[in-house]
Design a protein around this nucleic acid. Structure first.
Lengths: 337, 337
DNA sequence: TCAGGTGTTGTTAGCGTTAACAAGGGAGTG
DNA sequence: CACTCCCTTGTTAACGCTAACAACACCTGA
C-alpha cells in the first residue's frame, strides 16, 4: 500500500511523525522493548502499516555491529553431499533468524579458503560455517587467525574451531563388518581422493575392521568420487577372480563399479557384493539396489548452525566437537558368499 | 599484522591519522579516485597495510544504498538442477563483484515466495534471482509489485520480470523426434508434476512432435521427479506389451523406469527405448547408459546474473527473455525397433 | 601582474538506526 | 504531604562511511 512510486522509502522518522511520537519510540516498538504503553504501540504499528515502512537492516547492522548474516564456504555445491549440507545449514540458519551468504569454491587450496573467509569477513558476517572436507581446507582453517566465530563441517581436528562431522571411520567399519559377516574372505576398497578427510576416515574404518578380523587388507583402488573413476576401478576389479566383496567410498563411484561389473558379466550380488556410501536418493534404484551407509547431511548442517549460534549468542566458549553417526542401509547389492 | 587482540578494529580515521591525511583521502584511495597524488596514495596504502585496516562494507552500504549483495530464491537446492543453477549463479555473481544471499524454500506456494522476497528486500539486496520452476512461483512473482530488480529462472511468461530459461519444448521435441526417427510407432511419456513449467514444456514438445508425425499421443504417466515415481510408472509401462519407446521427463525418474524394466525382464534398448532429461553426472553409468537431453544449468545461472547485473548497472531497461537451447546426448538406452 | 582553470586535499553533513541519558508524571510509602 | 521509584517518552550522540562543497597551491595565458 502507500506505494509512493517515485518517492523515497519511508524511514523511522516518517513513522514517528505519522504516529506523533519520537523515532526512538518507533525503534522501541520494533524491538519489542517492554516499556511502551500499549496504546502507543498500537498507534505506531498503525503508522508503520499505513506507510508501508520496513526497517533498514543495514543501518541497524552499522550501529549494533551485528548483521544477522552467516557466511558459508563450501566446495562444489553441485555434489549431493555438500548440497544437502548447505541446504540443512540454510534452513537452520533462517529458522534461527540469520541470513546466509554463500561462497562456493571450485578449488580448495589454502589461498582459496583464505580469500573466501576474508571476503565474508569484509561483508560483516557474524559467523562462518566452512564445509571443509579436504585436508588442505582444514589446514588453511587451522592456520587462519580469524576474527569471526567459525565452525568447520567435516573438518577433522581443525585447529581452534568447533567441528561437526559424520563419523567416517564408523561408517567404513559398518560397511566392512557387514561384508565380513556375510562370509567374505576379505573386502576390497575403492577410495575417494587421498586429500579428503572423509576418504581417509573411510579407509581407516575399513582397514581397522579387516585387521580386527585378522584379514589381509588388499591395496585400495583410488577414485575421485566421480562415477567414471568408479567405473574404471570396477573394470580392474572385474578382471580379478578373487574379488568377492567391494566397499566403495561413495554411491556415485559405486554406480560406476556396478556398471563396469554389468559390462563384464560380473553379477552383483551373486558373484561380488558391493557396498556404497552416502545413500543418495538414486541408490535405491541402482541395478541392483545398493546397500550403503547413510550420512545424515541435513543433521550435520543443522548441528553446525546450532554450535555456531550458541557460540555467537552465548559468548566465547571453548570449541565443541559434534559427531553424527552414520547408519547402515541394507539393500540387495550384498549377499552371502 | 597489528593484531590488537582485545582492541577495536581500525577505522578509516585511524588510517588517516597514521598516514597524516584526512579520512576522505583514505576513502578516495580505496575507491580509486583519480585525483590523488601517487605519493599520498602510497602513504595511505602503507598505513592501511600497517594497521590491517579493512573497510566496513555495512557503513558503505548505508550511504551508497548499494549492498553489492544479490538474493537468490530457489526450491530444494538438493536436486541436481537447482543446485547446478544456483552454483552457476553464485560463481557469476561473485565474478561480477556481488555477494549472494540464499533462501531455499521447501514449498513454493505464493506466500512462501512472497515471504522470501520480502525477507531479501529487507536485507537490502540490490537484485534478486528467483529460480521459479513452478507455475505457482511464477504466478507469485508476476503479482508481486517488487521494488527490487528481479530475474526469473525457468519462470515462463512471468509478469513483468526478465526471464532466463532452457527451451523445454525444444527438449521434449528432441527426445521424441529421436525416438520416432528410430522407427517407433509412438512414444510414451512419464511427466513431471503438472504444476511445474518445465514438466509442462516437455509435455508440449513431446505432444507437438507426435502430432507433426501424425501419431497418436498416449496418455502421459505423471511422476514427481523422484526415482520412486519413475519406478512406479515403469512398472505400469512394463506390463503393457505395446510400449516400445518412453520419454521420461528427468534422469532420476528414468533411473526408476530402468529399474522397473530390469525387474520385469523388459530389456532396454532391445525391447523398449528410453530417453531421459537433464544429463545428470550419473546417467552415463546407468544400466544401460541413458540417452538424454542435456540442460546447461551453469549457463542458465550465468545468464541470469548477466541480465540482472545489466539491469542493475545500466538503469531501468525493458525486460529481457533469454532462452538456452538443450542438447541431445545419445547413449545406449535407445535403439531401432 | 592577475584572472581562470585544474589538480589535490580538507571540512562538513548526512545515510537510518540504536544506545545512553534526561525528563516528566503517577503511584506507593513513611 | 513530601520523597522516592518506576514507567514512559524524548533528546542527543554515535556507528563508519561517501557526497558535496570549500580551499588552497600551482600552472597557464593575456
Amino acid at each position: 500500500m502507500g506505494s509512493t512510486l517515485g518517492r523515497r522509502l519511508p524511514v523511522m522518522a516518517d513513522v514517528a511523525r505519522e504516529a506523533g511520537v519520537s523515532h526512538q519510540t518507533v525503534s522501541r516498538v520494533l524491538n519489542d522493548h517492554p516499556n511502551v504503553r500499549s496504546e502507543t504501540r498500537t498507534r505506531v504499528l498503525e503508522a508503520i502499516d499505513k506507510l508501508g515502512y520496513r526497517r533498514n537492516l543495514v543501518a541497524r547492522a552499522l550501529v549494533t555491529k551485528h548483521s544477522r548474516t552467516l557466511g558459508v564456504v563450501s566446495f562444489d555445491t553441485t555434489l549431493y553431499g555438500p548440497a544437502s549440507t548447505v541446504y540443512g545449514i540454510e534452513q537452520a540458519a533462517r529458522a534461527a533468524g540469520y541470513f546466509v551468504s554463500i561462497v562456493s569454491l571450485k578449488s580448495i587450496d589454502k589461498a582459496g579458503v583464505r580469500d573466501a573467509l576474508d571476503y565474508l569477513a569484509d561483508q560483516g558476517v557474524d559467523g562462518i560455517v566452512v564445509v571443509a572436507p579436504q585436508r588442505s581446507a582444514a589446514q588453511a582453517l587451522a592456520d587462519l587467525p580469524l576474527g569471526v566465530p567459525t565452525v568447520a563441517v567435516e573438518g577433522g581436528q581443525a585447529g581452534d574451531v568447533s567441528v561437526v562431522c559424520v563419523d567416517q571411520v564408523a561408517g567404513g567399519r559398518l560397511a566392512t563388518e557387514h561384508l565380513l559377516s556375510l562370509g567374505h574372505e576379505t573386502v576390497w576398497h575403492v577410495s575417494g581422493p587421498s586429500d579428503w578427510l572423509e576418504a581417509e576416515g573411510r579407509v581407516a574404518g575399513w582397514r581397522a575392521a579387516l585387521e580386527e578380523a585378522g584379514r589381509e587388507a588388499p591395496r585400495p583402488l583410488a577414485g575421485d568420487w566421480s562415477p567414471r573413476s568408479g567405473y574404471e576401478a570396477g573394470r580392474s576389479l572385474a578382471s580379478m577372480r578373487n574379488v568377492t566383496a567391494v566397499f566403495v567410498a561413495n554411491d556415485q563411484m559405486a554406480l560406476g563399479v556396478l556398471r563396469a561389473f554389468t559390462e563384464q558379466g560380473v553379477r552383483v550380488p551373486e558373484r561380488v557384493s558391493v557396498v556404497g556410501f552416502d545413500d543418495i536418493p538414486e541408490s535405491e534404484f541402482f541395478s541392483p539396489p545398493l546397500t550403503t551407509i547413510r550420512q545424515d547431511f541435513d543433521a550435520v548442517g543443522r548441528h553446525s548452525i546450532e554450535v555456531l549460534v550458541r557460540q555467537l549468542e552465548g559468548g566465547p566458549q571453548e570449541r565443541e566437537r559434534l559427531v553424527v553417526p552414520p547408519t547402515f542401509v541394507p539393500r540387495v547389492s550384498t549377499a552371502r558368499v
